[in-house]
């Protein structure tokens, strides 16, 4: 019940562009010098869809995310968000990084407020920050400094900051990678709850197959082929079953083995 009310409150505070956006990646390539990292990546993400990008380290998954977010520029191809070509930082996109990257001299609430779009009225901004803190369960810690909260709480603050931007697309770069296993699972559930309340299109970069299967509608497997240097999409898997999914289901276990094999890990080896 509380969640529905909170969703209404957030919707009431919306800034007119919080509808989830379509992300279209076309023929995308990125080379650092003459070393290609990504080659010919094509991907379309529907509004409100959660897509996990899975790959071994060095497979260019973070690079792909940074290009979609405008923090990096492609050397080939384009990214469009709702038919606008991405060139530089886009105000419909918000990013959550692997490290929370909070400003240590600001309180939790002020860090969330840092994500507010420019030009928002003070009262509306304050109300939005309060609603987001409640959404991520940090309303009691609004006045704390980042160094006085735990890693999981810092990551929740970072998530709230990204949502403060009222994004059409939320980009998450291994946001839970540095957390312990239990906190990570809790954060995955929290993310899904948050997205129920404040829906947006999500691209989630992860190296954790479990996480991808738990959170995503579709899983994109990035990897290199033997005679090519740059990574491309190896496989796109639609994850069956409605969320929240049973972490122990046999169907997911099968998919998990398949994706691990795609990452180069033999299922018989463990």
């Amino acid at each position: 019940m509380a969640a529905v009310e909170l969703g209404d409150r957030l919707a009431g505070l919306s800034l007119g562009r919080s509808t989830p956006a379509t992300v279209r990646v076309t023929g995308l390539g990125r080379a650092f010098g003459d070393r290609p990292v990504l080659e010919g990546v094509d991907l379309e993400v529907a509004p409100g869809e959660i897509v996990a990008i899975l790959g071994a380290s060095g497979s260019g998954k973070s690079t792909l995310l940074r290009i979609v977010g405008g923090l990096d520029a492609a050397t080939a191809g384009t990214v469009t968000i709702d038919d606008h070509v991405v060139a530089g930082i886009d105000d419909r996109v918000a990013i959550g990084f692997q490290e929370p990257r909070l400003l240590p001299w600001r309180t939790v609430a002020d860090n969330v407020a840092y994500g507010l779009p420019s030009g928002i009225a003070k009262d509306a901004g304050r109300a939005r920050v309060a609603a987001l803190l409640e959404l991520v369960g940090l309303d009691d810690f609004a006045g704390h400094r980042p160094r006085a909260i735990s890693g999981g709480m810092a990551q929740r603050t970072s998530l709230a900051r990204a949502l403060a931007r009222d994004p059409g697309v939320l980009l998450l770069d291994e946001p839970f990678g540095a957390l312990d296993a239990l906190t990570r699972m809790r954060m995955q559930d929290l993310l899904l709850g948050v997205l129920d309340t404040a829906p947006t299109t999500v691209l989630l970069v992860t190296h954790d197959v479990e996480e991808a299967l738990q959170v995503a509608d579709r899983v994109v497997l990035l990897g290199t082929e033997p005679d090519r240097a740059g990574a491309r999409i190896q496989q796109i898997v639609t994850v069956p079953g409605a969320r929240p999914r049973d972490r122990g289901s046999a169907e997911l276990a099968e998919l998990r083995a398949e994706l691990l094999a795609g990452l180069g890990i033999d299922r018989h080896a463990h």
Partner: peptide, 18 residues
């Protein structure tokens, strides 16, 4: 159930994290 999924981190867990 909604509020349960929304606030999986209980106050006790927060205290432990802190």
């Amino acid at each position: 159930t909604e509020s349960a999924t929304l606030r999986p981190t209980s106050a006790a867990a927060d205290a432990a994290e802190l």
